[in-house]
């Protein structure tokens, strides 16, 4: 196990399986596929919100819902925050978002809108450092503590 200290953007505790993107996480492109048939299936009952970003081979077609999303930052369209907010409102958000770098304005918008305007719990920690993203691998177990401590378990 390795411990990383970050800064709390949205407080909360959670344990979840890591889903790692070493490149920027394009929120619109990632949720695009999941949003296509919204009320029927998209963010819906029988899916796990698969990533639709063809430019992100690490995440493409992998389920994002309920995962500990580990990323440097988000990129792309300014609909990004609104999309994260919607995911939170529908209860289809990642378990948490863990940023190696300082959080970007779109991810912050989405996380804060989700926190203030919905009942969703999605802890967000940023500034975990480059070493965090070098160490964590998809599938590892991650525990987020209230004070911004992130524990990465090897198995």
């Amino acid at each position: 196990m390795k411990i990383f200290q970050g800064r709390v953007v949205v407080p909360g505790t959670v344990t979840a399986e890591a889903l790692v993107s070493h490149g920027g996480f394009n929120t619109l492109a990632s949720y695009q596929m999941a949003l296509q048939f919204g009320d029927l299936k998209a963010m819906g009952k029988d899916t796990e919100v698969a990533c639709g970003d063809q430019n992100n081979p690490e995440l493409y077609k992998k389920p994002m819902m309920g995962k500990a999303l580990c990323l440097p930052q988000t990129i792309g369209s300014t609909t990004g925050g609104m999309i994260l907010f919607t995911a939170c409102a529908l209860g289809k958000q990642p378990a948490c978002m863990l940023f190696s770098k300082p959080i970007d304005s779109l991810a912050a918008s989405g996380a804060i809108l989700g926190d203030v305007w919905t009942d969703a719990v999605m802890p967000v920690v940023d500034q975990l450092g480059d070493e965090f993203l070098e160490y964590v691998k998809t599938g590892m177990s991650i525990s987020v503590k209230e004070n911004g401590i992130v524990e990465v378990h090897d198995s």
Partner: peptide, 16 residues
């Protein structure tokens, strides 16, 4: 504003 579309799945936005 960037939001110009009335997508069914985005109801939480219009509710807000």
């Amino acid at each position: 504003t960037v939001i110009s579309f009335g997508l069914g799945v985005m109801d939480p936005v219009y509710d807000l």
